[in-house]
Each structure stands twice: as structure tokens, then as C-alpha cells.
């Protein structure tokens, strides 16, 4: 019961912080900050998707950005054709999920090992990158939506209140939607992980052979986890396309794929708060470093402003020094201190 109590307390703390951010940010900060926080929230939803499939499902997907990008492009293309955003929103979740189901079927039922899974998912996202990148000509269009190649798709209509085309979500509304989405996805994943399904996927991560010898089919569970992760990433992609009213192929790129993994490594696998913390922390750092380095700077300033270099250093530092990530390491420290404190109290 204490484990359940502390788990509920954890959810309560996260919800309290989340609600505080939700209510206070627009009241305390200017719109540019609110816009930045909105994209942090959207990316944190994306981070949660990998946090689930890698941290709990043990599936190291290098191409989570493929599902993110598919969600964004699906929304963009659908909403430009339909005008009303209800069905495009649904499609932005369903299309990546179906794509993941097909890809995952061949990966998991073909018994492809972990390393190759990483290679295949990375390759898939790069194929998408190159494919979409080379659709610049006017002949590349789906309905009335031109794909635009490297220039991407600008002017994507914003989400509207379901079935009410004229009630569009404005910039501040996007902030509320993104933050509420993050909280909802977090709570839903907590519930999923507390369920029988969630416990079984963790057991499969721990020892797939044993789980199978107990009668669980790991392929079914891994495929389901992969699909759920893709659906969440697709939803994040839809929010992202809304945030800037714009998508471009860089969404499928190597940098984007690598970032998601760095967020999860830094925040900590096997937790849900970890990827959120890692994602927001790294993005804040990226923005802060980028802002300090105008393009003409040279010398040390340029070095500090070289964001990929700094991110690479952070990644290596964490892998070598804090391999479990921030949250689990803090948890370990707390666990080490607690019994001592209990003894001292006696």
C-alpha cells in the first residue's frame, strides 16, 4: 500500500506543478515566453512517447521522429483539404499508429534484434526525410495541399473546436491545449503502466524469455507498445504543426531523432517524469545557448553557441557519468538517504 500511496503522491505532485504552469504562465509572462513554453510542452509529449516504448517497453526506437513527422504532415495535408480539423486531428494519430503497426509487425514478428530495430527505425525516418525533401515541384501535392519539398508546408489552418470550424484555437489556446495534453498523456500512461498490460511490458523488458515461458507472447505486447508510442508521437506532431502553422522535412531529420533520445537519456529511462524534465531542460538550454550566439560571433562565443556540440557533450557526459538519467539517480539518492534518516530519527 505504501508503494501505491507514494505513486499517487507522485502523480499529485506532477499534476500540481502542471496545473501551476498551466494557470500561471500566461498570467506572468509575455506571449513570446508562452509560445516557447508551448513548444516545450509539445516536445515533452513526444518525449513521453519514447519514454514509454524505450524506458518501459525496452524498444530503442531511433526513429520516433518518423511518427512525429507523419502526424504533423498528416494533419497539415488533411486539414488543408478538409478545412475543418476534427478528422485531421484523428488522422494525425491513426496514420502514424497504422504505419507503426505495419513496420512493427515485420520487426517484432520477424524477430529482428534490438540493434537492427534501431537501424531500421532510423533508416525509415531518414527515408521519409529524403522522400518529403524531394517533393518541391508543383506536381507533388495531395489534394489541394502542396508538399513543398524542403520548404515545407506553410499556412496550416489551426485546430478548431471539434466540429465548429470557426472556433479556432489561438496562440494562448495552443498553450493551454499543449499543456493539458501533456498532463493527460502523462496520467494516461501512468494508468497504462499500472495496468496488467503495463506490468507485462516491463516484465518483457526485464526478461523476454521468461515472460514467454510464462505464456505471454512478447511480440504482441511489444507491437502494442510500439503502436501506442507512435500514436502519441503523431499527436505531438499534430500539435507541433499547429504551433507554428508550418511543417518541414527537418521534422524527420537526424537531429530531431537524436534529440528525442537525448531527452530520455538525460531525464532517465524507466520513469515518465524523466523524459519530460530532460526534454524541457535540454530545450531551454538549447534556446539559451542559441540566443547567446549570433551568427557572426567567433572564438569561444561561437563554441558556446554551437548547440549540437554542446548537446553531444551532454549526451556523452550523461551516458558515462549519470547513465540512469536525472530522475532515477535522484531517486536512488533519496532511497539511500531515507533509511539513514529513519535510523537517525530513532
Amino acid at each position: 500500500m505504501t508503494a501505491r500511496a507514494s505513486s499517487l503522491a507522485g502523480i499529485a505532485v506532477v499534476l500540481a506543478i502542471g496545473l501551476a504552469v498551466l494557470v500561471l504562465t500566461p498570467r506572468l509572462f509575455e506571449l513570446d515566453v508562452v509560445l516557447n513554453v508551448t513548444v516545450y510542452m509539445i516536445m515533452a509529449v513526444l518525449a513521453l512517447s519514447l519514454g514509454l516504448i524505450w524506458g518501459f517497453g525496452g524498444i530503442l526506437c531511433f526513429g520516433q521522429s518518423a511518427f512525429f513527422g507523419l502526424g504533423a504532415y498528416t494533419y497539415a495535408i488533411a486539414v488543408m483539404n478538409m478545412g475543418e480539423s476534427t478528422l485531421p486531428l484523428v488522422l494525425s494519430v491513426v496514420v502514424p499508429a497504422v504505419f507503426a503497426a505495419l513496420l512493427g509487425y515485420f520487426i517484432f514478428y520477424g524477430r529482428i534484434s534490438d540493434v537492427y530495430l534501431g537501424v531500421i527505425t532510423l533508416t525509415v525516418t531518414l527515408i521519409l526525410f529524403n522522400s518529403v525533401n524531394s517533393t518541391a515541384g508543383p506536381e507533388f501535392h495531395i489534394g489541394s495541399a502542396r508538399l513543398g519539398g524542403f520548404n515545407g508546408i506553410p499556412g496550416i489552418p489551426a485546430l478548431n473546436v471539434p466540429f465548429f470550424k470557426d472556433w479556432q484555437v489561438d496562440l494562448e489556446g495552443m498553450f493551454y491545449l499543449a499543456t493539458a495534453s501533456l498532463l493527460l498523456v502523462y496520467v494516461a500512461l501512468r494508468a497504462l503502466l499500472a495496468s496488467r498490460f503495463g506490468r507485462v511490458i516491463v516484465a518483457i523488458r526485464e526478461n523476454e524469455g521468461r515472460a514467454q515461458l510464462l505464456g505471454y507472447d512478447p511480440r504482441v505486447y511489444k507491437l502494442a507498445t510500439f503502436v501506442i508510442g507512435a500514436a502519441i508521437a503523431g499527436y505531438a506532431g499534430c500539435l507541433f504543426a499547429n504551433w507554428g502553422n508550418f511543417v518541414s522535412p527537418t521534422i524527420f531529420g537526424l537531429a530531431q531523432s537524436a534529440q528525442i533520445i537525448i531527452w530520455v537519456i538525460v531525464g532517465g529511462r524507466g520513469t515518465l517524469v524523466g523524459p519530460i524534465v530532460g526534454c524541457i531542460g535540454i530545450q531551454w538550454l538549447t534556446a539559451a545557448l542559441g540566443a547567446n550566439a549570433p551568427s557572426e560571433t567567433a572564438g569561444w562565443a561561437a563554441l558556446v553557441g554551437n548547440v549540437p556540440l554542446i548537446l553531444g557533450a551532454i549526451l556523452i557526459g550523461f551516458v558515462l557519468l549519470v547513465p540512469k538519467g536525472i530522475l532515477p539517480t535522484l531517486g536512488d539518492l533519496a532511497a539511500q538517504l531515507t533509511p539513514r534518516r529513519a535510523k537517525a530519527a530513532r
Binding site: R196, R199, V200, V202, A203, E206, N207, G209, R210, A211, L213, L214, G215, Y216
Partner: peptide, 18 residues
């Protein structure tokens, strides 16, 4: 061959839940 990262109770739970 057990679930090393889980508790004894969680190990048995996974089996019993099948």
C-alpha cells in the same frame, strides 16, 4: 531466469496474472 529488476512480489504477480 527471473525478472531481476522487479521485486519478489512483482515477479510472482506477473506469473499469477497470466
Amino acid at each position: 531466469s527471473v525478472f531481476d529488476g522487479l521485486t519478489v512480489r512483482e515477479n510472482l504477480w506477473i506469473a499469477a496474472a497470466r
